[in-house]
Design a protein around this nucleic acid. Structure first.
Lengths: 195, 195
DNA sequence: TTCGCCCTAGAACGATCACTCTAATAGAAG
DNA sequence: CTTCTATTAGAGTGATCGTTCTAGGGCGAA
């Protein structure tokens, strides 16, 4: 069946979330996906690197869609950001601080070591920043202001994941969310009402 | 000589910066420190875990001292934060995006796997946040506002390290720095001039 | 010198790593 | 049915992992 491939990607993503790239073995992947080594290398002849690149790409697209769903449900950029951080905090708590973004977990360990994975992560982050930038531009913000703010929010949510997971305390995510919400609120009112 | 121990810690910290915990082997450590396996396990009988805990503790104290030096050189909290992010951006560029914080790199890969290292990272982050909170309290901010802001800044600098290193672009660090500087400026003026 | 202790030296260990390879099986196409 | 391609199965590869262990070097104290 073709969904063996999907199970491999999903299992790898789950393992990357809690152990990162180097901490995850191919045996754990095949065990988690209930697949065999033969299947794994049939679908990913490029080995661990190709599998990881697929995980990053898939997870990146998933989070982007989640962001767009949240944005669509919100009545303002400010509310969207508030919902984003609150949702992240709840997800962390409900998963016992395991369900963090696999991309942030992998990015730092591969950035200086594996160029193909570095580029895969870079592409995902750039997509996220671009999407958030577009949202802020629609609020009337200048290109540079929107880009700065979008970059900051992506950075902040990634760092807050690290802090909250390390401390096993989702309030660190919420604290960061409050600050970012205030920042967005200030930036949008300023954009709407120019001096 | 007793500085063999220091060389081991320094070499491990350098390796953690670019490869993380699981990506770094004991052989790389002994090679980098010009030490032997015997020396390594003499000084760190607890093995890789004990060595990593020492690296986290030492690096954490080093960055805290750096923060305090920067703060002392600045005339305001706002300027201190600006200097902090600018310095981080320059360090990244000068080291070809290798010289990032080893603690952020290690934190996500060990948070769900190695409790002793998770606690070591948690302690370091808590110390950083507490120090920044104290600085903001001296500006007259309320305890909760100061703590929120301090948490946000630590999260933002960690996330910005990830983004900048992944994209090999220090401007992402500078963009985050501009937003955080604006946030601190707004918070301090509000604290100084209450409604 | 001789002792005693801190540190170094590096071979060796079993386990596990990512990966390869051959053979078997399944199911669609003819 | 036969044939063919896609997928599964899992034993086996050499390399490398973290760690252990025995032996010896270096140096101050007696």
């Amino acid at each position: 069946m073709a969904d063996t491939r999907d199970r491999l990607v999903a299992a790898t993503a789950a393992l990357f979330q809690r152990q990162g790239f180097n901490g995850t073995s191919m045996k754990q992947v095949t065990d988690g996906a209930e697949a065999t080594t033969g299947s794994l290398y049939h679908f990913f002849p490029g080995g661990k690197d190709e599998l990881a690149a697929e995980v990053i790409k898939t997870a990146g697209a998933g989070y982007l869609e989640l962001f767009q769903v949240v944005t669509a449900a919100a009545t303002s950029s400010t509310e969207a950001i508030a919902l984003l951080f609150d949702g992240a905090a709840i997800t962390l708590e409900q998963s016992d601080f395991v369900d963090a973004c696999p991309i942030f977990t992998v990015a730092l360990e591969v950035a200086s070591v594996d160029e193909s994975l570095r580029l895969a992560c870079q592409t995902v982050f750039a997509t996220w920043v671009a999407t958030a930038t577009t949202m802020f531009r629609e609020d009337g913000m200048s290109p540079t202001a929107a880009d700065d703010l979008a970059t900051t929010i992506v950075a902040a949510i990634g760092g807050a994941f690290t802090l909250a997971r390390t401390a096993r305390d989702a309030d660190l995510m919420r604290a960061t969310g409050r600050s970012m919400t205030a920042l967005v609120a200030a930036a949008t009112t300023k954009a709407i009402t120019p001096p």
